[in-house]
Design a protein around this nucleic acid. Structure first.
Lengths: 215, 215
DNA sequence: ACTTTTAACTAAACACTGTTCAGAATATTT
DNA sequence: AAATATTCTGAACAGTGTTTAGTTAAAAGT
């Protein structure tokens, strides 16, 4: 009889509802300000119910973590249309920054928080989305080498380094450290009106640097 | 009479005691796990007393923030002995990484947490230590340009970019994202046994990249 | 010396947090 | 209709940052 299936469907539906409520509250009020009790109130259940569907808060974070990565990969979808590898790499960096600026909390969740990745490791889960993103970068870098860029540089190390630079730019931006620099450095103050202008300027500098590595 | 002075001394002493207790607990158990109640217990006072000396937890964080920066600047003291600018820049990067690895919580406090810097801005305080550190980097980059490196690149943007890369490397390391990569990339797995080996390898790649920018 | 004033300190409470568990409510099976 | 299995919740536990009313101790004034 289909009664077990119906119940199973109901269970999965509620599990998704919890995640959606968590996601909305999370994007609305930020991660720090979202509690289990908030989520429970939103779906009109008791806080204890949530623990029947998710082991603990980390499991909810991990689920959101996966969703966040899918969102990042969505931002990379435009890359398929770009013919030359170096232009693709440039667009990838641009998309990465746009993602970090549009969804700072999601960025924080997937790239700076310890808990979600720790959860992946202790539960021996895999991290396909993360691997896929890095592989995409690596393939692009290798394609750039076919175009004459980054000659003689080991591609994995370079990919990691490019990621580090982009990550550094994005986190210094979202943590407010770049905002401080706009006050300090009067020298470049005219180049950028706002903090995102400074970010764009820094990214341009990075691209120029990479362009020099063509020989 | 010196009674007011004595009381003032006593006040300042207790204020320092609070900070020292906070610092110790903080370095011992990490930032997240240190509460006002913990600090109060350590100095054998009531939690409420702490609020007579510090407005709130953010003010304690800010005080520790300043101490943390002094620690970073200490790590840069060796630079004075190094004659050539590019070697100085390399040593600076090395010192930066060593600092981040030795004191991950302090690093987190001064470079990735929002609260301390937000406190600086809302209280209209200045951030001399931070400025001094960036200026040191900028001067080193400019000195490198005198040695023929980074020709035609605007030094402030480049300094910021170098910082971003170093910051990216350090935060990806401390957040556990680099640890994940050691599993993923079998290609470089033989080059580095542990995660700090990978970090060192990535830093070497960065230095090689910078060396190429001499023309 | 005795009272008044001032400063230092604290117990207790407030409004939260994640999490657990015994028991109530509901739905399914016998 | 009774027994069973599932789903859900109220209440509690141990913790968090912070505030306030009230106590204690020290200094100043008379």
């Amino acid at each position: 009889m289909g009664v077990a299936e119906r119940k199973e469907r109901h269970r999965e539906e509620l599990k998704k509802d919890i995640l959606m409520a968590a996601k909305e509250l999370f994007l609305e009020n930020g991660f720090e300000a979202t509690s289990i009790r908030n989520i429970a109130e939103k779906i009109e259940y008791s806080p204890a119910t949530i623990y029947l569907y998710y082991k603990d808060k980390n499991e909810i974070i991990h689920a959101l973590h996966q969703e966040g990565f899918k969102l990042l990969i969505q931002h990379f979808e435009v890359l398929g249309t770009i013919p030359t590898a170096f232009e693709r790499l440039k667009a990838m960096g641009h998309a990465y920054i746009q993602f970090a600026l549009k969804h700072p909390d999601v960025y924080h969740l997937i790239f700076t928080m310890k808990e979600p990745l720790a959860h992946v490791q202790e539960c021996e889960l895999d991290w396909d989305e993360g691997d896929a993103s890095f592989t995409l970068l690596l393939k692009t870098v290798e394609a750039c080498q076919q175009e004459g860029y980054f000659k003689g540089i080991e591609p994995v190390g370079l990919s990691f380094l490019i990621w580090s630079t982009m990550h550094g730019l994005c986190t210094l931006r979202t943590s407010g450290h770049m905002e401080h620099m706009t006050i300090v450095c009067q020298q470049v103050q005219d180049l950028k009106k706002d903090v995102d202008g400074l970010l764009a300027y820094n990214y341009e500098t990075f691209v120029k640097l990479l362009e020099r590595l063509k020989s």
